[in-house]
């Protein structure tokens, strides 16, 4: 009904019980690459490699295509690295992400992923690189709705772009939720930042309850709709869920395709709680 193919992995953070549907399938992460970037930023702050309170001035030259945060600003703005990280996660601010990626280094993010054994997860490009690739493929970054053009996009091929698997994504979230991704203090900060994400239409739509918490990060490209996150129940149950979808239609607005991410996540969590 939703007109999508999907891959999913969900794990109970306390019992370790898990459920999946193609959980080891390589998938395009789209903006979900911002989560491993967040983790490496926190780790470098822990190690003293950088000062997360350092002020950065964002100018027009830094600006990357995007509808939110400093990407949409008209004037220069000065803010700290950790506040840029907040915009990167809460609003999926592309400019903030690319500034942080330049500071942290994609190779360092991948080394961190290797260290945790997440070898199926790679960050090969920032947001600007994804747009550049799209422009090279079809002559423009947006909009791309012609099915033949969509079929040519390298950013939709896991082998050629930022990628992961549903299981590795829940694994990364589990590290964040158990204070193992970075220091307890900065792991808690990452949880807070992921909890500030504004989008209610995907993962959170499956849990429309005041007393259920949903933290997460979305990822979107033509036909790609993803979200990974942690669902926290009033009785203390915590579940990391990763849902990746590809829509059959190339239309940008498909509320049902967004909502099915929440529905699938709810079914997975319901299964884990049973």
């Amino acid at each position: 009904m939703a007109g999508v193919d999907g891959w999913l992995h969900a794990v109970d953070l306390d019992s370790g019980a898990q459920v999946g549907h193609g959980p080891d399938t390589p998938v395009v992460t789209a903006s979900i690459f911002k989560v491993p970037l967040l983790v490496e930023l926190a780790r470098q702050a822990d190690a003293g490699v950088l000062d997360w309170a350092e002020q950065v001035t964002v100018t027009d030259a830094d600006r990357v295509f995007g509808p939110t945060g400093v990407s949409a600003f008209l004037d220069d703005a000065t803010l700290s690295l950790r506040d840029l990280a907040l915009l990167m996660i809460a609003l999926s601010d592309n400019t903030a992400a690319d500034l942080l990626l330049a500071r942290v280094g994609a190779d360092r993010v991948n080394a961190m992923l290797d260290g945790f054994g997440f070898t199926g997860t790679r960050v090969v490009s920032g947001a600007a690189g994804l747009f550049q690739s799209t422009v090279e493929d079809v002559g423009r970054a947006w909009p791309v709705v012609d099915p033949e053009e969509v079929a040519r996009l390298r950013v939709l091929d896991p082998a050629q772009t930022n990628r992961s698997t549903p299981r590795e994504c829940t694994g990364l979230l589990e590290l964040i939720w158990t204070d193992r991704a970075a220091s307890p203090e900065r792991s808690a900060w990452m949880r807070t930042v992921l909890g500030r994400q504004v989008w209610p239409h995907r993962l959170a739509s499956g849990f429309p309850y005041d007393d259920v918490g949903v933290s997460g990060k979305t990822g979107t490209l033509p036909t790609v709709r993803n979200e990974i996150g942690v669902v926290e129940y009033p009785d203390g149950g915590r579940y990391a869920v990763a849902v990746f979808t590809r829509a059959h239609s190339t239309a940008y607005n498909q509320p049902r395709a967004d909502a099915v991410i929440g529905t699938a996540a709810r079914m997975a969590v319901d299964h884990l709680r049973g």
């Binding site: 500030r196 504004v198 209610p200 959170a204 309850y209 005041d210 007393d211 259920v212 918490g213 009033p234």
Partner: peptide, 14 residues
């Protein structure tokens, strides 16, 4: 009784 928790979303005045 456990205190009732209200999650932050969709947020206050957002």
């Amino acid at each position: 009784a456990p205190a009732r928790r209200v999650s932050g979303r969709p947020g206050f005045l957002s």
